[in-house]
């Protein structure tokens, strides 16, 4: 008989080892959605994440914490989308733009997926300065949570979140538009 050697997670509150499942579930859901896709319908990240949460979080599972889930979902979504943009040659398209067009595309949020790998790299640098800043960007931009939802996920006040979100945008914009500090 199997030896009952239980390697439970060292800290029951730490659900990071479950990130692969969230990632997998998001990808799977995205694929399912796309098969059902009808013309003119858009698939929003937020809808996907909410559905993933409903599916994954049920009683008696290791998920006790919606906050934790959202953090991991946002990170997974960032990973999925950036991987895909890289695969489509986004970096090349982005590098082909001159600085003026680049800045204009950022200002008007019209770059499509071309800027995603560049945003991801800048975000990694920001993360080294201030990890919370990167979390905010993942929640707001990559899974489209509102100010209130993001604030709740990070356990800070909406007013604080709003100010820090402005800071993250300014920091990243400077990084991407090549403005000397």
């Amino acid at each position: 008989m199997t030896q009952a050697v239980t390697t439970a997670p060292s800290n029951p509150g730490d659900a990071h080892h479950l990130a692969p499942i969230v990632y997998d579930e998001l990808r799977r859901l995205a694929r399912t959605y796309m098969r059902r896709e009808r013309p003119g319908q858009t698939l929003e990240a937020t809808a996907l994440v909410h559905e993933a949460f409903l599916r994954l979080a049920d009683a008696g599972t290791p998920w006790t914490d919606r906050r934790h889930f959202l953090g991991i979902a946002a990170r997974s979504m960032r990973q999925i989308l950036v991987e895909r943009a890289r695969a489509r040659g986004a970096q090349k398209r982005w590098a082909g733009l001159d600085p003026v067009s680049m800045t204009a595309a950022l200002e008007r949020a019209s770059a499509g997926d071309a800027a995603l790998p560049a945003i991801d790299e800048a975000l990694t640098r920001l993360e080294q300065v201030d990890p919370e800043q990167a979390r905010i960007v993942e929640l707001r931009y990559f899974i489209g949570l509102s100010v209130e939802e993001s604030a709740e996920a990070l356990n800070i006040s909406p007013a604080t979140l709003k100010r820090r979100w402005a800071l993250a945008r300014a920091w990243l914009f400077r990084e991407l538009s090549g403005d000397p500090a």
């Binding site: 995205a30 959605y33 989308l81 895909r84 707001r140 931009y141 990559f142 489209g144």
Partner: peptide, 9 residues
């Protein structure tokens, strides 16, 4: 927020 996932994926 990041665009339409159907398009991105």
């Amino acid at each position: 927020p990041v665009g339409d996932l159907a398009e991105l994926l």
